[in-house]
Design a protein around this nucleic acid. Structure first.
Ligand SMILES: [Zn+2]
Ligand SMILES: [Zn+2]
Ligand SMILES: [Zn+2]
Ligand SMILES: [Zn+2]
Lengths: 132, 132
DNA sequence: ATCGCTTTTGACAATCATTATCAATAAGCC
DNA sequence: GGCTTATTGATAATGATTGTCAAAAGCGAT
């Protein structure tokens, strides 16, 4: 049977304080900073559980890290800031339709999709000037 | 200046023989199997170069591996078989529009998107029966 | 074809995220 | 309070990717 531990609660709580997606490593650091003595492996396990129970969304960063976020339930997608990690949940009805269509059109079954938009949010105005 | 080596050509050629996305590790194995003595690091470097030059597409597998494929030029997306790796290039005009709209709507700039559909192709009929 | 300068290679070490181990700990239940 | 067993956490192990650097190979000039 699944047991309730303060560690699980701590991870849930820590995730809730986050505005955007975070890695297990980062969340572990945060927790340590706040005085918690939780172990790294436990954070990994808790996040993995939360994700499979649908209490958190997870995605792969372009660099290949697994990132997590406490999310509203139901299928949705994200607009993510590459700088601060801020994530906005967005509807994507058009995309849902497209994905379904494209899969059936090519005879693919059990189709799932990965759809994320990465950019810089308005607070993270990119300090990049292309042309001088 | 960029030099032409047989290693780069070998990687390009090996990529062309692949129907779907492959990892650097796998491509290296393939090459070795065919008698090539190319080094692993070189395969990584070549793939990375090809990707940044637009000669290959790359994406992160759900497991976090970087996968590559020789692709037609121009922006497009993929429908990928989870079993055999077969990849089909698909148009996604609806998605392009959606992505642009959603980014600007939330004040995000320099937006890029990750859009991939994973499923089982018709040849890889899933041997899974849900209900007995 | 040879020389010389630079890029590229490749064997190997180093990173880094994630997972596996496994004895010690602590839920949930009596 | 005890029992049973899931969970924890320090640490080792794994596995993909990148860094190192001396040796090898392009390429333009001779
Ligand atoms: Zn979400
Ligand atoms: Zn969707
Ligand atoms: Zn493609
Ligand atoms: Zn697109």
């Amino acid at each position: 049977m699944k047991r309730n531990t303060w560690q699980r609660d701590a991870v849930r709580a820590a995730l809730d304080t986050q505005l955007g997606f975070v890695s297990a490593q980062n969340l572990h650091s945060s927790l340590r900073t706040t005085g918690s003595h939780i172990g790294l492996a436990t954070v990994y396990r808790a996040l993995s559980d939360l994700a499979s129970e649908g209490e958190a969304d997870s995605l792969q960063s372009p660099e290949g890290e697994s990132l997590y976020r406490a999310c509203s339930s139901g299928h949705h997608h994200h607009l993510i800031c590459r700088s601060c990690g801020l994530a906005v949940e967005v509807e994507a009805d058009d995309v849902e339709v497209w994905a379904k269509k494209v899969a059936s059109l090519h005879g693919f079954s059990q189709a799932e999709h990965v759809v994320d938009v990465f950019g810089y949010c308005s607070s993270c105005v990119p300090a990049v000037k292309e042309s001088a």
